[in-house]
Every structure is written in structure tokens, then in C-alpha cells.
Nucleic acid binder design. Structure first.
Length: 260
DNA sequence: ATGGTAGAGCATCTA
């Protein structure tokens, strides 16, 4: 099973590129973030024509997440299933695809350390863990689980182009990394890192100042797999070609292949 | 690196 994730930074602006990439990479599952669409305008039919069922959770203008699957979509859940009040934003959608519980997540950016947005980011990551506990039940992470998306966290200093440039910034702080580690302690693994343990393999580059061409990037888009899946991960790639050319997103798509 | 660009939608907000 090929499990992919891509922050498209507006699906409307990327409707040439996303179908093209689906035809090229043929993922079994593709998690999208920042569709910036309301549910009513999500192009389910365009993906259906390519063999993909889809589920979307969005309110328009900002955020918005989707799961596309050609191995089935069952039991979609919009937002958190932790029983708490609905999230203020549309940042997570979950469904079972080919037997795997898949969540597409767009973790809040945090904006600046200590801001209310940063507090929301850390709380959101706590809710994500409780959401997964609720949906997996007594089986927990022993079952097949994939949490894919833009985490807005660089797991280690090897995941940013220059750690010194990020001092005092979000995405690299200890509390953010600890929130990610809490998910790993629950039973998820950064599958790309297992395949490619080396540094400087990024998924995001700011549009500004020629960052992409100067290799000033960050690895913040992750596929977290439960142990039974991670043990079967055989290949992973970031498709940097999809960050080039006309009208790219500021994120590249990445995927992990799992031998099921 | 303290500006720069892109996408939302029409004045700014978000990243």
C-alpha cells in the first residue's frame, strides 16, 4: 500500500497538479491538507474519475483536509472523535482505507512561541492522541494506523536547513517536539525517517527569497505509522519534482510504501 | 533571513 500526503496550499489552485500526480505516483491513499475549500465545492467527481473515493472536511478560505483512496473509504469522521467540543478549525479527517485507519491532519502553525496560537497547537496535538485512542479502542496502536499530514513540526534539528535560523521560532521548540514524541510513545513511528535516516531531506520550502532553489527547507510533512505497518515499510520518497515548475504548492508530496 | 511570495478574497489575513 502506497500512503501519501501533500499540503496543496489551495486545492483549487492545484487542480492541474494533483490529478497529474495521482496518475504518476498512483498512491493507494493520498491525504491532502490546506484544501481551502468548503465541503460543497470539493471536487469528489474529478477524483472519482481517476478511481479515487474521497472524504473532505473543510469550511473554505483556510485549512481543510481530505483523504483520497482507491482501496475504499469506510466510517469517515470529520474532526476529533474525543468527545470534547468541536475544533475551531477543520484540520483532521479520518477514515478506514483498505483496513488501515487513516487520518489526514493539518496541525496548527502556532505562529509565534507563547502566543494563543502556539497554545492551541500544543493542545491540538494532545487532542490528536485522544482522538486516536478513542477510534482504535482497546486494540490501540496494535492495529494498522496511519496519521499523515503537515505537522508543522520539524522532528529534529536534522530536519531544518539551519537550526540557528530557527532559534526562538515555532516548529522546533521542545514542547512541540515532545508532543510529537508523545504520539510516538503511544505507538506511531516516523516512517520516512526509518527509510531515510540522513539529514536535509525536506518537504516544505517557503515561497519567498528563492528558498527552494537554495535548499532552505524543512521536513514537517510526516507519515506516522503504527508499529505493525512501520515494520513493513519498504520505500519512501519526497517528490521534489512536484515542488518545481508552474504554480507549485510550497510543500512537496511524500509517500511511504508498506508491504501488506 | 527581519524581507521576501503565494493564496484566500477585496482589506487584510495566513503561512
Amino acid at each position: 500500500m502506497r500512503i501519501a500526503t501533500w499540503n496543496v496550499n489551495s486545492l483549487k489552485a492545484r487542480m492541474d497538479r494533483v490529478p497529474e500526480w495521482l496518475a504518476y505516483a498512483r498512491p493507494d491513499v493520498l491525504c491532502l491538507q490546506e484544501t481551502k475549500l468548503a465541503d460543497a465545492t470539493f471536487p469528489h467527481m474529478a477524483f472519482e474519475a481517476l478511481g479515487y473515493e474521497s472524504v473532505h472536511h473543510g469550511s473554505g478560505q483556510w485549512n481543510g483536509v481530505a483523504v483520497l483512496s482507491r482501496v475504499g473509504i469506510e466510517g469517515p469522521v470529520m474532526g476529533f472523535a474525543d468527545g470534547d467540543a468541536p475544533d475551531q478549525d477543520t484540520r483532521i479527517v479520518t477514515a478506514r482505507c483498505g483496513g488501515v485507519l487513516v487520518s489526514s491532519v493539518y496541525v496548527p502553525n502556532g505562529r509565534s512561541v507563547g502566543s494563543e496560537h502556539y497554545v492551541y497547537k500544543l493542545a491540538w496535538l494532545g487532542r490528536l492522541r485522544r482522538h486516536l485512542e478513542e477510534l482504535t479502542g482497546p486494540t490501540g496502536p496494535a492495529g494498522p494506523v496511519a496519521v499523515c499530514g503537515d505537522f508543522n513540526i520539524a522532528p529534529t534539528d536534522a530536519d531544518v536547513w539551519d537550526p540557528a535560523a530557527f532559534e526562538g521560532s515555532t516548529h522546533v521548540t521542545a514542547p512541540e517536539r515532545q508532543a510529537l514524541e508523545a504520539l510516538e510513545e503511544w505507538g506511531l513511528e516516523d516512517a520516512f525517517r526509518r527509510i531515510w535516516p540522513g539529514p536535509a531531506l525536506y518537504t516544505y520550502w517557503d515561497y519567498r527569497a528563492g528558498d527552494f532553489h537554495e535548499h532552505r527547507g524543512m521536513r514537517i510533512d510526516l507519515v506516522l505509522l503504527s508499529r505493525s505497518l512501520a515494520d513493513r515499510a519498504s520505500w519512501a520518497l519526497v517528490d521534489r519534482n512536484a515542488r518545481k515548475g508552474k504554480l507549485p504548492s510550497d510543500h512537496a508530496p511524500m509517500f511511504v510504501d508498506v508491504d501488506l
